[in-house]
Computed example of a mutant assay.
Amino acid sequence: WAGQVIERNGKFYWYVTVSHGSIHGKSIGIAVSDSPTGPFKDALGKALITNDMTTKTKISWDDIDPTVIVDDDGQAYLFWGNTVCNYVKLKENMIEMDGPMQTIDLPNFTEAPWIHKRKDWYYLSYAYQFPEKIAYAMSKSVHGPWEYKGILNEVAGNSNTNHQSIIDFKGKSYFIYHNGSIPTDGGSFRRSVCVDRLYYNPDGTMKRVVMTSEGIQN
């Protein structure tokens, strides 16, 4: 679950959370395709990250929710985690780590990190507490230090979980998330994808997202 596709050099890399066949717990795998719609195939032949590689927490589901950024200098980074936020440099081939794993100390980090950059600022948003709100931090460097900036999105209706992505499209910014408003038996594990506009303040901070039932109209 909770995957992200990112393009590099004409290839599309899909980072996904999977259950490992022989190592207990969740893992992060990578698939690759020539098209964002697939077909995708295993890029590495094994998981990139397994539960025995991360020891800051004893839970078996801490290696989830991967998000990737390719920085302006071409260096790629992978962020992920549950209860502990991790990140690591990736090699140019996008399927190997290039250095040690690092951790980031964020207030009330639960899961669902999302990394993006706008102008000179890096933004690290994430699921905060439980039931989950979305909070975020900002930095002038992908390596931090990260300054906590507060809540970006409130608890999304009747869903205890939330997981966001932030994109720009045709000059506008969008906040993608989920709630539990699907008409039949909606809830924390029967979710609806939602999209609302995202706005920035002059100082680069993000305005709190206004959730709507209508979503994007134009």
Rank of each mutant, 00 (worst) to 15 (best):
Tyr199His: 15
Trp146Val: 02
Gln102Met: 14
Arg191Val: 03
Tyr174Asn: 01
His143Trp: 07
Phe109Ser: 06
Tyr123Leu: 04
Asn108Gln: 12
Lys91Leu: 11
Trp121Tyr: 12
Phe130Glu: 05
Leu152Met: 12
Trp146Ser: 05
Ser125Gly: 04
Ser139Thr: 10
Gly171Glu: 09
Ala156Gln: 05
Asp168Gly: 13
Ile104Pro: 02
Lys117Gly: 03
Asp203Val: 08
Lys91Asp: 12
Gln129Ala: 07
Lys91Ser: 15
Phe169Ile: 01
Tyr123Met: 03
Ser139Phe: 08
Phe130Trp: 10
Ile95Cys: 07
Arg118Gly: 00
His178Glu: 07
Ser181Val: 03
Thr161Lys: 08
Gln164Cys: 14
Ser125Lys: 00
Asn160Lys: 11
Tyr148His: 15
Gly180Thr: 04
Trp114Lys: 02
Gln129Tyr: 03
Tyr126Asn: 03
Ile182Tyr: 12
Glu147Pro: 00
Ile95Met: 10
Ala135Leu: 01
Trp121Met: 09
Ala156Tyr: 01
Ala127Glu: 01
Asn179Pro: 07
Ser165Leu: 03
Val195Met: 03
His178Gln: 06
Lys140Ile: 00
Ser141Leu: 01
Tyr177His: 04
Pro131Lys: 06
Lys133Ser: 01
Val142His: 08
Gly150Asn: 09
Ile95Phe: 10
Lys170Arg: 15
Pro107Arg: 11
Pro107Trp: 10
Leu124Cys: 08
Asp203Lys: 10
Tyr122Gly: 01
Asp105Ser: 15
Gly180Val: 03
Glu92Leu: 07
Ser141Asn: 14
Ser159Val: 03
Pro107Asp: 07
Ile167Val: 15
Gly144Thr: 11
Trp114Leu: 02
Thr110Leu: 00
Ser181Lys: 14
Ile115Lys: 05
Asp120His: 03
Pro107Val: 11
Ala112Ile: 04
Cys85Asn: 15
Lys140Asp: 05
Ser159Gly: 04
Pro131Thr: 01
Ile95Leu: 08
Ile134Trp: 04
Met94Ser: 12
Thr184Gln: 12
Met97Phe: 13
Glu147Ser: 13
Glu96Ile: 10
Phe175Gln: 00
Ile95Asn: 07
Glu132His: 10
Lys172Ser: 14
Asn108His: 13
Lys133Leu: 02
Ser192Asn: 13
Tyr87Glu: 09
Gln164Val: 05
Val88Asn: 09
Val84Ile: 15
Thr103Phe: 09
Asp168Lys: 12
Gly187Tyr: 05
Asp185Thr: 05
Ser181Ile: 05
Pro107Ser: 11
Pro145Tyr: 11
Arg190Thr: 14
Arg197Gln: 10
Leu198Ile: 02
Val195Asp: 03
Lys89Leu: 12
Met97Glu: 13
Lys140Phe: 00
Gly99Phe: 12
Glu96Phe: 13
Thr184Cys: 06
Pro107His: 07
Asp168Leu: 06
Leu152Asn: 06
His163Glu: 04
Leu90Arg: 10
